[in-house]
């Protein structure tokens, strides 16, 4: 299940949704948050996430399908927020369940690496009256190459 939404998400509820009775032996989850990015007090900073409706969901589904073809997974949940956020807000959730931990860890890592480089989202940081778009990181490209 993939969701792109403005509203916050409940990690406990998403965890429960990953469990398959009598079958799940491992759950790996990742939560990304907005961290401090400026010298100004947090209440003078905002963070905005733009996306490409339609393409973003398509990208995320392709990434999840790819993960399912590489590892033996039970349930996968990806939730990504868009719109205006504040420091400390949750941005993204990726959760994976499987029989064993290796698959869960690897699939969760893989989905996040691909999401960072192959899903149509853009971050913008605003401090006071100044705004700037976040630039893509070279480190993210290197991490993606691990799976190719």
């Amino acid at each position: 299940m993939i969701r792109v939404q403005q509203e916050d998400f409940d990690v406990a509820a998403l965890y429960q949704a990953l469990l398959v009775a009598n079958k799940t032996g491992a759950v790996a989850m990742f939560v990304g948050l907005v961290r401090e990015f400026a010298e100004l007090p947090p209440d003078e900073c905002t963070f905005e996430l733009e996306h490409y409706p339609g393409m973003t969901e398509h990208n995320l589904q392709s990434i999840v399908d790819d993960a399912k073809s590489r590892w033996d997974l039970q349930e996968v949940r990806v939730v990504h927020r868009v719109g205006r956020l504040s420091i400390n807000d949750q941005i993204v959730f990726v959760g994976v369940s499987s029989s064993h931990r290796a698959e869960a860890f690897q699939a969760c890592d893989f989905i996040m690496d691909y999401l960072k480089s192959r899903a149509a989202f853009w971050k913008k940081e605003t401090q006071g009256s100044r705004s700037q778009w976040v630039e893509a990181s070279e480190k993210d490209k290197t991490r993606l190459a691990r799976w190719q």
Partner: peptide, 26 residues
């Protein structure tokens, strides 16, 4: 909705093209 490269062909049946800076989600 599929990422494309400069050499990729846009067919006459294409519905929508988009251009954007490198993505930065997550």
């Amino acid at each position: 909705y599929e990422f494309a490269r400069d050499a990729d062909l846009v067919a006459s049946s294409a519905q929508e093209i988009a251009f954007f800076p490198p993505v930065t989600g997550g």
